[in-house]
Design a protein around this nucleic acid. Sequence first.
RNA 1: GCACCCGUAGCUCAGCUGGAUAGAGCGCUGCCCUCCGAAGGCAGAGGCCAGGGGUUCGAAUCCCUUCGGGUGCGCCA
Length: 604
Amino acid sequence: MSAAAIDARAGLWHRLSYPTGQPMMNLFADIRSLVIEAVAALASAGTLPPGLDTAAITVEPPRDPAHGDMATNAAMVLAKPAGLSPRAIAEALAERLASDPRVTGAEVAGPGFLNLRLAPVVWQRVVRAALREGAGYGRSTLGQGARVNVEFVSANPTGPMHVGHVRGAVFGDALARLLAFTGHDVTREYYINDGGAQVDVLARSAYERYREANGLSPEIREGLYPGDYLIPVGAALKAKYGDSLLDKGEQYWLAEVREFATGMMMAMIREDLALLGVTMDIYSSEKALYGTGRIEAAIDTLRGMGLIYEGVLEPPKGKTPEDWEPREQTLFRSTAFGDDVDRPVQKSDGGWTYFAPDIAYHYDKVTRGYDALIDIFGADHGGYVKRMKAAVAALSGGRVPLDIKLIQLVKLWKNGEPFKMSKRAGTFVTLRDVVEQAGADVTRFVMLTRKNDATLDFDFDKVLEQSKDNPVFYVQYAHARVNSVLRRAAEAGIACDDASLAGADLSGLSHPAELALAGKIAEFPRLVEIAARSNEPHRVAFYLYELASEFHGLWNRGNDDASLRFIQGDSATSQAKIALVRAVGVVIAAGLGILGVTPVEEMR
RNA sequence: GCACCCGUAGCUCAGCUGGAUAGAGCGCUGCCCUCCGAAGGCAGAGGCCAGGGGUUCGAAUCCCUUCGGGUGCGCCA
């Protein structure tokens, strides 16, 4: 298979067609079907040739409100295959669409855009739908139940999680929530790297703490883990083994201590993740792959495909390691799948390289029947992407797409200056430190305020600031304001439970500023799908910021224009306006739910 | 040397997988509370989307190339 073929499979998400007759409210999808129906009608009327491909037709909100409520590129997309000018097609479409009660205006603009203006009732329906669907507003069937495995964190079980892991944990969990929200069957998985040399180091380090617990002075030699967090492990070892492991050779205790210590580390890591609100469905062990023949089986499968061979790699150009010497190795022909060089799976001593169990592990995921795999790596593992994709492409026969998201660094700031971490100086910031200082909700939101492959500043002072500099606060404040209005309205005797609001006459919602806010609410389901298709949960955070901004704006317009205040003299008008306000609250809560952040009811 | 990521306002960053006159926050300038929470809002100034080619109705977005920054490059995971 060529690299291009792999790219073509880059995401299952891109191939899923739009579900038909979907029950959920998605205005853009609705209007798009309307446009496509119009195209079909024109085709049967002979205005357009039959059988045109409508896949490239999009319906989106124009950037400039002067261009109406919805814009479609249909005419421009169809012009060439139809052999007609874009404007001619646009005009024919405009005429047909204008007869729909939802459409109050259809005009051709620019090179052939068709700008639609929609009736107020359309926006009122959006508000109603948000109220009816509540926390499920924006949910979609995009994924059609596809089974997706998201592997993330996978921190080495050699110590507590540090701040570098937090972003990956939050990103992975938010992505999992996003995919679940869009109709995917999601599994959260953690791959425990408990098979390599680093867990031997852990065992030796823990053993020194065990000696310490027995009253001996520990020898934390160079290369061992010096952290205090191993002291309890030493104590626990003493509790279990007494002094029976003292003065014994490593071969006597290494395996047992390793098992014991990694077990305790994993328990600690689970607790750390729980602090962030992250729960894994599956923990997979690297070590469990050894001695079971599964690595051999995975490699043999590749061998059966002619993708394993004995060969000698060229030294890297421009930077030859000093001890380089040509050596015959067992290689995986990853270049057949777009990788730059073939990759060794066996070391010269006959042992597996780290790549081999990873192949076996991904083979395991493939055979477990997932429709798509997602790996979340630190950005420093970028060089690993191609070979991993190659392995999965080979082992799944191209059936299972693997998307790998790289998470960039988090730069910590404190007191207006960069916060340098150092293990030696004891300024090593753990996940626990971050969550204890900032709180899980704030931490999660902030970690999603940047695209995953851009570095992110985490400023301990700013994230707790209650001002609009702080996006978390800004969004939460909007949600709190919504509740504030609801409280006031209830005091005024206005029925404002969701059912009453959803059933209310919404014709009082007519001001352009109000309808524009409803328009923002209408974008949410579409935004969620876009975010899910690209595996980019940060888009939800940005959307929420924009929504909050529009809401704050409308709120303040009430200062100048009393007719825009939400609570009015008559309760019918009030209900309509409060329905809009509550719909904003619903969407903020739904969006925060995707991010795993709890909306606040009040901030005093 | 090669591969991947990045380069957008003074600063920090979005930008709908190709749409119209490129957006937001900070900072700067000037405004708005007898009024649902001013912990907010409005307005103004600020741009060769790193440079150059190409693809097409149309490019910040896709392709090629140059420059600049980051990451990685056989027996560490």
